[in-house]
Design a binder for these strands. Sequence first.
DNA 1: ATGAGTGCAAATAGTTTGCAAGCTG
DNA 2: CAGCTTGCAAACTATTTGCACTCAT
Lengths: 138, 138
Amino acid sequence: MSNSLVDKSLVHLSEAGLRLTKQRKAMLEVLAKAEKPLSAEEAHAELPSGTCDLVTVYRSLEQFDRVGVVQLGVRENGTKVYCLSHGHDHHHHLTCRICGRTERVDICMAEELEQVGRSYGFTELSHVMELFGTCPKC
Amino acid sequence: MSNSLVDKSLVHLSEAGLRLTKQRKAMLEVLAKAEKPLSAEEAHAELPSGTCDLVTVYRSLEQFDRVGVVQLGVRENGTKVYCLSHGHDHHHHLTCRICGRTERVDICMAEELEQVGRSYGFTELSHVMELFGTCPKC
DNA sequence: ATGAGTGCAAATAGTTTGCAAGCTG
DNA sequence: CAGCTTGCAAACTATTTGCACTCAT
């Protein structure tokens, strides 16, 4: 159970037809212990040195997102960030612009949004929502 | 009336201490007639040729956002987009990943989000929310 | 006239692509 | 052993910065 999140994600990857490599496992471990969404560069920096190339992180995170193993977010400056889907319900974040402190926000209007999307005939709906502010210390 | 949106925005800029230049006026006109949020590059492309440098568009849009004349959004790929605040209530968009078709979405949870932010002691709250999907034609 | 704003060039940050070699199922 | 994956290098896109010059107030 130490790593049930990672295990669940690995199964998910496998079922989605993606291959299980040591690089990907390491990335999932990093994502599992992160308390906030990580960018590709940040995830790479957290990997045991020499685990894999930054490019591989970009490519894998893209695949992870495609099959739903991770949830994609965007920072105020446009940087893409990812966090594991398993073990976390769909959620969003409140991030301090200055220090990066991040808090989890559980409110989400996914259903309402998807309903609007469907009313226009759109499919494969997804959404991005992030809250930014200045935290008490900054 | 032809340009009340632009006029309101110009007044707003002026009151915020920003200067009124022909470049900025041209940008506001482009934003006023756009039916969807524009990136800096797109806004620049819509300007009468030779109006100003792309860099100026970036710098001005940043200022516009800072004083609230425009509303910032982010595309799924991280590109920042802007639309006029005046004349439009705060809102969001539903964008087709394939063709870029964009529909306005009026639902927003700004209040709930800001309340959560304040509960953590955060100030100067802002949020980004965008909905993506594949439209009927694509 | 004074400082905000602009243009041009150059630097960055984040991300993507091409291709040959490696490893998974 | 087929083809998904990776590494390395290089290209790209979006955006930012430095600096001298210009213009709005």
